[in-house]
Simulated assay, not measured.
Amino acid sequence: MGTFNASSGGDFILLGFSDQPQLEPIISVAVLLFYLMTVLSNTAIILVFSLDSRLHTPMYFFLTNLSFLDICYTTSVVPQMLVNLWGPNKLITYAGCFLQFFFAFDFGAIECLLLAVMAYDCYAAVCQPLHYMVIMHPQFCKKMVAASWLTGLGGAPGVSSFTFTLPRCGHHTIDDFFCEIPAFLKIICEYTKIIDAFIYILGVLYLLLPLFVILISYAVITQAVTKIKSGRGWKKVLNTCSSHLTVVSLFYGSAIYMYLQPKKSFSYNVDKFISLFYTIITPSLNPLIYTLRNKDIKVALNNVLFMNKNQGAN
């Protein structure tokens, strides 16, 4: 059978959950609800940050970027997924699959890097409180965020182009609900050491190095926390770091499972639900995680809502 490569074009078939048709209506409703929750809650955080000057600090600047990123990430996946879930046609064009792959990788890589930047911010807040505003100068924060976006965007074209030229030997049926690296590895007919090295390098650059920064940051934070004797100090550290650590655990746990496991250990059904978790569910939970223990955001939300009600009454 001839190799189905980039030059041949053609549509792809995204099987998604078509092997379990009884679940498709339930999954489609759940995906739509989580998507709406993601867009509305993350948009609310962006608006509150813009309207409340008291939130113009490095931590909320990074959180706003994370919220915008999560909206972009889910939007690159969900619309096509809903189209496939709601109808019998499971096709996606070659160009559509390439763009979905490109943006999913780009936004996923940026999130890994941005979470590492936020870990450094936690370190500066806890371990260097007196010099925090000097270390986390607004210009420095903007440069770190810009570097995260540019690094992800810089790697996406090469990764996407290389992956789409891998030999598929006529295979164009993807047993997943969107186009991403693990999904393509399932249809590669010649899994070579070059591909192994490619996946390993990607894992190191975009997963392990940012995770290493996060672990180092929290190791230093833990060492500093052990020296704190007051309950108030402990509570302050917990409020500063707990939300970020929870988000990191959810995102990195599922991403590492998907991207760093051996090809032979892929389990199609498990992989689909893990992908569903970190592309759709986690982005909808991030705003909730950050607002549950954050009094500043709660107060800002109340102020914005209260102001809108007053304006409506007038």
Rank of each mutant, 00 (worst) to 15 (best):
F101T: 04
F101N: 11
F103E: 05
A109T: 14
E111C: 09
C112N: 15
L113I: 14
L114S: 03
L114N: 05
L115H: 01
A116S: 12
A116W: 06
A119C: 02
A119Q: 01
Y120M: 14
Y120N: 07
Y120T: 10
D121W: 01
C122E: 02
A125R: 13
A125L: 08
A125H: 04
A125I: 08
A125G: 00
Q128M: 12
L130P: 00
L130Q: 15
H131M: 14
Y132K: 08
V134F: 08
I135H: 11
M136I: 00
H137N: 14
H137Q: 12
P138T: 06
C141W: 05
C141N: 14
C141Q: 11
C141R: 04
M144G: 01
M144H: 11
V145W: 11
V145Y: 12
A146L: 14
A146M: 13
A146W: 09
A147I: 14
A147N: 14
A147L: 15
A147Q: 13
S148E: 08
S148A: 15
L150R: 06
L150N: 07
G152M: 12
G155P: 09
A156I: 11
P157Q: 09
P157R: 12
P157N: 13
G158A: 12
G158I: 10
T163E: 09
F164D: 13
T165I: 03
L166K: 05
P167V: 01
R168G: 03
G170I: 03
H171W: 00
H172I: 02
T173V: 13
T173D: 15
T173Y: 04
I174H: 07
D176A: 15
D176K: 04
F178G: 08
F178T: 02
C179E: 13
E180M: 11
A183N: 03
A183K: 06
F184D: 05
F184E: 10
F184S: 04
I187Q: 07
I188F: 06
C189W: 00
C189K: 10
C189A: 08
E190Y: 04
T192N: 13
D196K: 10
F198A: 07
Y200V: 02
I201L: 12
I201F: 06
L205Q: 13
L207H: 09
L209H: 01
P210R: 06
L211I: 00
F212I: 04
F212V: 02
V213M: 10
I216Y: 09
S217T: 02
Y218S: 00
V220F: 08
I221W: 00
I221M: 01
Q223N: 13
A224N: 07
V225S: 07
K227S: 11
I228H: 08
K229L: 13
G231W: 09
G233M: 10
W234A: 07
W234K: 12
K235A: 14
K235Y: 14
K236C: 08
K236Q: 15
V237M: 06
V237N: 08
L238H: 11
T240C: 04
T240K: 05
C241R: 01
